[in-house]
Design a binder for these strands. Sequence first.
DNA 1: TCAGACATATATCGGAACGATACATAGGAC
DNA 2: GTCCTATGTATCGTTCCGATATATGTCTGA
Lengths: 184, 184
Amino acid sequence: MDTRTLCLAVLLRGDASGYEIKKEFEDGPFSHFQLASFGAIYPALSKLAADGLVTVTEQEQDGRPDKKVYRITESGRAVLVGELHKHPHRDRYRSDFLFMLFFADCLAPQRIAELIDERRDFYRETVARMDDCDSLPTPGHAFVHGFGRAVYAAAADYLETNRDAFLETVETDPSKISTREAAE
Amino acid sequence: MDTRTLCLAVLLRGDASGYEIKKEFEDGPFSHFQLASFGAIYPALSKLAADGLVTVTEQEQDGRPDKKVYRITESGRAVLVGELHKHPHRDRYRSDFLFMLFFADCLAPQRIAELIDERRDFYRETVARMDDCDSLPTPGHAFVHGFGRAVYAAAADYLETNRDAFLETVETDPSKISTREAAE
DNA sequence: TCAGACATATATCGGAACGATACATAGGAC
DNA sequence: GTCCTATGTATCGTTCCGATATATGTCTGA
């Protein structure tokens, strides 16, 4: 999904400024499976306004900088629903964490343990935070929430279960950096 | 990880052309947690060669176009190991599939069922393919392989377990497109 | 008290990457 | 005989990320 569609999606759930839309991708339910940066959001909102898919209202605020509040229009809703009916792009997952562990023989065992523990804690905390959340207004929201929870929990469990055996194997394994030369 | 580092990583495991590196990101073990396109790989390889991190050998082939085979150098290995010791970037996951299911109240139940079934099959097939793979040369490779398998399996299980209840809820739920007006 | 960190808010810029396309050649399918 | 797939290199337009600039208020701790 491009950033314009993501902005429409946030606005479908209520009026918001660019800053608030960004927060939605930091903390909100979308944060687990979509990203958007300021550098993508602000141009996207300008384009949406130019195309009549959203309206803008400038709000003066005392103490804080002025705010531009965006609201989705009927055309905007139609475009969003249209996007929702296209064939979904394949999932894209990028993980430096797994990339590093893949080359565990280039890292010190202590560093590997750090990486794994940090990540396991992150997954556990995320699951706990998701369990605290009790407002799941739509069936779709609840289903996606449950999916994310299941996956995070499985990831944490795997790390916990296999951590020690992995570290032992790495420490025992005599092959340091695996190079082409080593194979020749 | 930027594309230059990813190319170094592939080359650490053996010499390869740009085309073969791309295939590695389509079918190889990296394909599950890193991506790279031709538009990123070819400029990256040129830059790596200019910086002396890889060497190039042009190979004529009968029947096929010429091939440029890249080989990682000692400097290249050092740079890769340096990257491996940096703090890992946070994981980035983008899923149009989850995005669409989030707005399930904008879709026909039949379409939702299609999306879920297709995705569940994909996860099941991926797990089966991973189980067939029997060459896991390094501990890191094996650990990451197991992690991926666990997560894919959990995802497939969740979809299978919750599919029917979800579809019933969606069909029963009277709220079609949830708009701001509906909340007012 | 006042420096520094943090939150709110909009916006742009350089560089990186995606996806499509171009070009070239060969083999197999229908 | 034409079309699709596979091998192979390369660029181009568009989009997007991450850092930075700018402005202002609050809160916190030496």
